[in-house]
Amino acid sequence: MATGPARKGLLVATFSTLLVAGAVAYTVGSSPAWPEVQKAFFDGRYFSTSLPAVAEAFTINVRLFIIAELLILPIGLLIALARSITAPALTPLRIFATAYVDFFRGVPSILIIYVLGFGVPALQLDGVPKEPFFWALVTLVLIYSAYVSEVYRAGIESIHPSQERAARALGLTRVQALRHVVIPQAMRRVIPPLLNDFIGLQKDTALVSILGVVETFKQAQILKAASFNFTPLMTTALIFLIITIPMTRLVDHLAAKDRSAQLGGTR
């Protein structure tokens, strides 16, 4: 199908890619310690023995990020709306929402997981669950709701004020204008950055291993400790890539579509 110049471009691209990959492989492979490193990290035997356990533990990660994402979608939107409230009576809510977002975006995730995951159960409050999975979920939801609320907010602010004004002029209240005019338009624009944040969330499910949740990374560490070989960690990495790469491609695809729609003059 490819026409002349396109085929030539493809050839050049393939050739240059192979050249670079070959050069990297040669550099790494010819290093004096490569045989040992290869044995420690990329041992086929350890790969196949670790795969079932690591893959099974990955279902915990999947459960974690799916439940978290379902919670984050509405919570992030509520925080974004709280931040865009202008009514003077509700100023405290706006200040709280702003402080919340600043805090959870500003502190390293791992610290928040430590403090919440170990600190709150240690208070031994009645009725507060102690399961690590629960606290892993709570911390991820808290952290990523802050990020996602910013994505929503940017989306809402990207809709021209004339749209809200037109809705208000028709007699819609501010809430009705947001609900029927602003948010539906913002939603289309926020999908790519939202998925980006979810890719980050999916990777960060590995962080909750520090709370003792035996998810895939923790499982790999256990196997590594037992065998003195790092290959199980590579198995985990591979599983993460299988999930995140298609999503990354999807984000790129959606973003490109969005751009061309905008260039096409869609208002």
Binding site: S162, Q163, R165, A166, A167, R168, A169, L170, G171, V181, P184, Q185, R188, T266, R267
Partner: peptide, 16 residues
Amino acid sequence: RRKLGIVFQGFNLFPH
């Protein structure tokens, strides 16, 4: 505002 209709200089229709 429901008793007052306005048509703006731009169209400001809802594109979605």
